[in-house]
Amino acid sequence: MVIFDKPKALLDVPLHYCPGCTHGIIHRLVAEVIDELEIEGKTVGIAPVGCAVMAYDYFSCDMIEAAHGRAPAVATGVKRANPENIVFTYQGDGDLASIGTAEIVHAAARNENITVIFVNNAIYGMTGGQMAPTSLVGQVTQTSPYGRDPKLCGYPVKICEMLSPLEGPEYLERVAVNSVVNVRRAKKAIKKAFENQLNNKGFSLVEVISSCPTNWGMTPQNALKWIDDNMIPYYPLGVYKDRSENAEV
């Protein structure tokens, strides 16, 4: 009996991510949920610009590559065209929380019936480690070489907190993938975000705190610890909005 294997919704190709990058875990969780809900045949995924730009090569469902930050608008077009499709976006922090803020805010405000997987690793990975809107105060990056100075470039953007006062969104939760327990919680949240769409409940966003060992300049193991020590204190995990019955927020 197979206890664990690669989900079918992931194609059998190697991922291009750096060793220890947790994008791979998040890809797998999304694919596991697609398998479990048996929705691969009607799912359309929207890939971002950033490290996950080639996600269209990894998921076995239909895929569209969006321009930087525009995935929620593209997803809106797809969902409005074919409401029977299950539509998800997979976006990083530069994509969603910087250049794509208008698109994500208004998709949430419209309660667009889509699922958003927001990967927050506090850095621009693909372009080689520049400061992200979510980079922490003091975090050293290529474009904040003396550490992020809030006097110069403000404070990191908290997307779940920012979207939660809107009437629109159905469900907002922040999870992390830096431990076995957290990965299992993340899976539960992602599953709920897809189920909400299946039940026509509307906009669901799961923010996943992820690691970038390469650009953080640490081992994969230390990167997971850095999430515990630095990311989660600033970006507390939990449900920020849930309109479903019996929801605990």
């Binding site: 197979v2 206890i3 664990f4 220890g20 875990i25």
Partner: peptide
């Protein structure tokens, strides 16, 4: 013990676990 912790944390989906 087949706890699947390794596979859960593997970013590259390389581990398959079976129980015989």
């Amino acid at each position: 013990i087949g706890c699947a912790s390794c596979a859960t944390m593997c970013p590259d989906c390389i581990i398959k676990i079976e129980k015989e």
